[in-house]
């Protein structure tokens, strides 16, 4: 064995910091490098203002103003042959910019091209629903509302899609705690028993590592079952072995006593 030397908590200190680290980015190219995309971009630019456009991983990304989203998608559908809205949702940038990023992923089966239309919308403002253009936006917009609080105007059935109707908050916000806010943690208790039951039922146990060997209120160990709330057997040393007990000692009325000695373990599965 090596002689002990004091390492002075070397692992506690950051021994390497890269002051010049830059987050890696997927390379972008100009729209002019692709004829099809260039024509599509011209069609959009003829009617609407384009804030930024580039090609990334063979897909064109167009950033537009949020109030133009319906018009731009209409142009892309009717004039540029992008017939499918394969996905739409939003990204939470509320902490950085106070904005939600809304994206529409479009696919043209004839051109074999994909376009992503993006816009940034301030918190509290609403985008126009694209449901009349693409039916696939129906549930996607409901999900974006449910999970991120994206407000959508003129949606035919704007209702939460995943969470319960009376839920408070939008769980995919970056600010939403993973284990839920107070409303979420008491949701089922409040709803079923009422707020006054909180004291009786108690808070949730969120410690996944909690193991209580002598817990007889809830989890007796398999093969060591005891009645609820029984006095735990204090034992020092190894746990005493208790045989599996399927039946009471004195036997059961009209049922043959199970004899472990006589039971057969079938080894041959195909017998």
């Amino acid at each position: 064995m090596r002689a002990y030397t004091d390492k002075k908590d070397a692992q506690k200190k950051a021994y390497y910091t890269d002051r010049y680290w830059v987050a890696p980015q997927v390379p972008k190219s100009t729209v002019e490098s692709d004829e099809v995309f260039a024509a599509d971009l011209e069609a959009i630019k003829a009617k609407f203002e384009v804030i930024e456009a580039y090609i990334q991983v063979k897909q064109m990304v167009v950033i537009i103003k949020p109030e133009d989203n319906y018009g731009v998608l209409e142009v892309l559908k009717d004039e540029c042959d992008y017939t499918q809205l394969s996905e739409m949702s939003a990204i939470d940038w509320l902490a950085d910019k106070g904005q939600l990023e809304v994206f529409y992923q479009l696919l043209s089966m004839n051109k074999r091209k994909r376009i992503r239309v993006k816009c940034f919308i301030d918190q509290g403002l609403a985008v126009e629903s694209v449901n009349p253009l693409f039916r696939s936006a129906d549930w996607a917009e409901r999900e974006a509302y449910d999970m991120l609080g994206l407000k959508v105007n003129n949606h035919p059935f704007m209702k939460r899609i995943l969470m319960p109707d009376d839920w408070e908050g939008h769980p995919l916000h970056k600010s939403y705690p993973l284990q839920g806010d107070e409303f979420a943690q008491w949701y089922e208790v409040d709803k079923i028993f009422g707020k006054e039951a909180r004291d009786i039922i108690g808070p949730e146990n969120r410690d996944p590592a909690m193991v209580d060997r002598y817990d007889t209120e809830r989890f007796g160990r398999l093969g060591h079952e005891v009645p609820r709330g029984a006095e735990p057997k204090e034992s020092k040393g190894p746990e005493p072995t208790t045989p599996l007990a399927y039946q009471e000692e004195e036997g059961v009325f009209m049922i043959e006593k199970f004899d472990e000695e006589k039971s057969v373990v079938i080894r041959d599965r195909d017998r």
């Binding site: 769980p171 089922e188 039922i201 146990n205 969120r206 989890f219 007796g220 398999l222």
Partner: peptide, 26 residues
């Protein structure tokens, strides 16, 4: 029993928060 691996906002942390349970199977 306890919510298991779903230590999240959307999962009830043990069904015994809602109904009385006689037997827990691990």
């Amino acid at each position: 029993n306890t919510g298991g691996m779903f230590n999240t906002y959307a999962t009830v942390q043990g069904v015994d928060r809602v109904i009385p349970v006689d037997l827990y199977l691990p």
